Lab assay of single mutants.
Amino acid sequence: MSRVPSPPPPAEMSSGPVAESWCYTQIKVVKFSYMWTINNFSFCREEMGEVIKSSTFSSGANDKLKWCLRVNPKGLDEESKDYLSLYLLLVSCPKSEVRAKFKFSILNAKGEETKAMESQRAYRFVQGKDWGFKKFIRRDFLLDEANGLLPDDKLTLFCEVSVVQDSVNISGQNTMNMVKVPECRLADELGGLWENSRFTDCCLCVAGQEFQAHKAILAARSPVFSAMFEHEMEESKKNRVEINDVEPEVFKEMMCFIYTGKAPNLDKMADDLLAAADKYALERLKVMCEDALCSNLSVENAAEILILADLHSADQLKTQAVDFINYHASDVLETSGWKSMVVSHPHLVAEAYRSLASAQCPFLGPPRKRLKQS
């Protein structure tokens, strides 16, 4: 649940008159999402009104509101027999009622949201009550392989729920002597030191190019640089560091992050930047690179990204790559990247197969709970 924001200063709310007192009302909304995959969808019983329910879910471990999704594969009634019906059901509720908006969509073979439908307002739910769409999607369109909505005969539904909580009022009075504290510009100011090479005390040599930097900042941000300058190493004695395995453009992006906490060109060089972040123990930059690479996972590059993640101990990226390969196994196994990995990294192939087997055979063990970014 997000923290209630402070109200904007009255002088910034309007260029008009300023009242002596004010009130700011925040209506709290808890948002969460749920993904439900139905394997072997074409084998569902086709009687009209037949119901399939998901397991229950909530916004978190401490949330007492429990929900589930309900599907009628062949419609709810005679009117909707040519459609799939989809509903959000409130299973248990400690209150007399709650209000919530919802959005349903289908994830296609690429994991993209399609055929989205959402409620136009927050509906009133009581325990045992459901709301949804009797005519969510035509069955003939859903079952047509050309539309790519049932890869490997799996129907994957994605649901986003927004639950309306209580409202909170914050009130106060205006004073004539309003003090406005300026925003912190530390990142910009440190970035200026790097860009202008002011007050530098060490030189970093990268592929024949020299960059002036500040030992204190490098040591504070990177345990690797800290070790170089702290001990009686040649880098500490000469205040000069030779860097041979990072390209200059990648190095500059890494230094921008060290000084400012930002990497504006990360998406263009996420793979190389991940390697640099791993070498210099820049954990936050490493996770930022993992996130960017996750966003660009595809059938063509899944094997290469899995190898990269394994090489640099990028655990979150590795998990996402394995899950992606499992979901698109029939396509990924035909790529040149996968065939190369079979020869060069057989242990990763074995890991992917083990994960695929456990996903398809849940009876082999208890269900695993899916539970950071600093």
Rank of each mutant, 00 (worst) to 15 (best):
V30T: 03
E249D: 08
P7G: 12
S92R: 06
K115H: 13
V71S: 10
A302C: 03
K66V: 05
V4C: 12
D310V: 02
S96Q: 13
K369G: 04
V206A: 14
S162A: 06
E160K: 08
L274P: 00
S59G: 05
N326W: 14
L84I: 12
K318E: 10
A270P: 01
M233T: 11
M35F: 04
F125T: 00
D278N: 06
A116W: 12
T25S: 01
S80C: 02
W194C: 05
P362R: 15
F229L: 14
S298W: 12
L149Q: 02
S33H: 09
T260Y: 01
L311T: 06
P73F: 09
E113K: 03
K135I: 13
P73T: 05
P17F: 03
V126Q: 14
V206K: 01
L371P: 13
L84Y: 09
C23D: 00
G128Y: 09
D245P: 06
E113L: 08
D272Q: 09
D267A: 08
T319I: 01
V246P: 12
K95I: 05
E235S: 01
M254A: 10
M13R: 04
L155F: 03
G337M: 11
G16W: 05
S336W: 12
K53E: 06
V91W: 13
S119K: 00
K134H: 12
S167D: 01
G365M: 15
G192M: 09
V163Q: 06
P223R: 12
R284I: 05
Q165L: 03
I307K: 03
D152K: 14
F158K: 07
D331A: 07
C44G: 11
S80W: 11
L143H: 13
L348Y: 06
Q360G: 03
K64D: 04
E247V: 04
D291R: 03
N62H: 05
S80K: 09
S162P: 08
K66M: 09
K180N: 07
S355H: 10
I137P: 00
C93F: 03
K28W: 05
M269I: 06
E145Y: 04
K81I: 02
L155K: 01
S358K: 11
E290L: 09
L89E: 02
S119Y: 00
A303C: 06
Q165V: 01
L274R: 00
E20V: 02
K64W: 12
S340K: 12
C361M: 12
L273G: 03
L364F: 14
T175D: 05
E78Q: 13
D153K: 11
D144L: 14
A146W: 14
E47W: 04
Y83T: 14
K31N: 07
G192L: 09
S162K: 07
P362M: 08
G128P: 15
Q360N: 15
S14V: 03
I38T: 02
S55Q: 13
C203P: 15
A359M: 10
V126K: 14
D245V: 05
V181I: 03
L204N: 05
W67A: 14
C361G: 10
N174P: 04
A219W: 13
P248T: 04
F43P: 04
P10K: 04
A227V: 14
E113F: 09
Y353S: 00
V343L: 05
N62F: 05
L285F: 04
A359P: 08
L356M: 06
E290C: 07
D272M: 02
G172N: 03
G192I: 12
K215L: 03
D331V: 09
L317A: 13
G261W: 05
F363Q: 13
M13D: 04
C289W: 00
F211V: 14
L274Q: 01
K66I: 04
T175C: 02
N62E: 05
N244P: 07
Q165T: 03
T156D: 11
G365A: 14
A207G: 15
I305Y: 03
K28Q: 12
W22H: 12
M117T: 05
D63K: 08
Y83Q: 11
V98G: 11
A309G: 05
E253M: 10
A350M: 09
S2K: 02
A213E: 07
S92H: 14
A216Q: 05
M13V: 04
F41H: 07
T319E: 12
V18T: 13
V161T: 11
S167K: 10
S330T: 03
L157S: 13
S374R: 12
V163D: 04
F136Q: 11
E183Q: 06
Q127C: 13
D272Y: 06
L90T: 14
A281I: 09
G49L: 09
P7Q: 08
K129M: 11
F133V: 05
P9E: 13
E20P: 12
N169L: 03
W338M: 06
R221A: 13
D144T: 09
N244L: 04
V342C: 13
L274C: 01
H312W: 04
L65A: 12
P8N: 07
N40C: 11
I106V: 03
C289N: 04
K95Q: 10
S42R: 09
D130E: 01
K339I: 11
S374P: 05
A314N: 06
C93N: 07
C294A: 12
S222M: 15
M233E: 13
E145W: 13
D267H: 03
S336V: 12
V349M: 07
I137V: 13
C93P: 06
M269E: 01
S295I: 10
L333C: 13
P346W: 07
D271N: 04
K64S: 10
L88V: 10
I325V: 06
K134G: 01
S355F: 03
E78Y: 14
V30I: 08
F102A: 01
E195T: 07
D267G: 02
N301T: 14
F57E: 00
V164E: 08
M13I: 03
L364N: 15
K268I: 10
M233C: 15
R354K: 12
S197E: 15
D291L: 14
L88Y: 00
A11T: 10
A219I: 14
Y83A: 13
E232D: 09
E112R: 14
A292P: 06
D315S: 08
T156G: 02
I27V: 01
D153V: 10
F225M: 12
I325C: 06
W338F: 10
R185S: 04
I258Q: 10
K129L: 10
K135Y: 09
G172V: 04
Q320F: 05
L69G: 13
L157Q: 01
D291Y: 04
L143S: 10
C159E: 00
N239K: 01
V332E: 00
W36R: 01
Q173M: 02
A187T: 09
S15W: 11
A302K: 00
M233A: 14
I38V: 02
K129Q: 14
V91C: 11
I325Q: 01
K268P: 09
F229A: 11
T156Y: 04
N39W: 09
V163S: 09
K134W: 01
D331L: 10
I325W: 11
S21K: 11
C184S: 06
W22C: 01
L356S: 02
P9I: 10
I106M: 15
G128S: 11
G208M: 13
G16H: 11
S295N: 04
D153S: 12
L356Y: 02
S336G: 02
D140G: 06
A263T: 07
K262E: 07
W194M: 12
V30A: 04
E234P: 15
R3P: 09
Q209R: 08
D144W: 04
V322Q: 13
K81V: 12
K95T: 06
E97S: 10
R121G: 07
S92G: 01
A263E: 05
A146N: 06
S119L: 03
S15I: 07
G148S: 01
W338T: 00
K115N: 03
P223M: 08
M1W: 00
A100M: 07
R370L: 11
L186A: 09
L204I: 13
C68V: 12
I305F: 08
L348G: 00
Y327R: 07
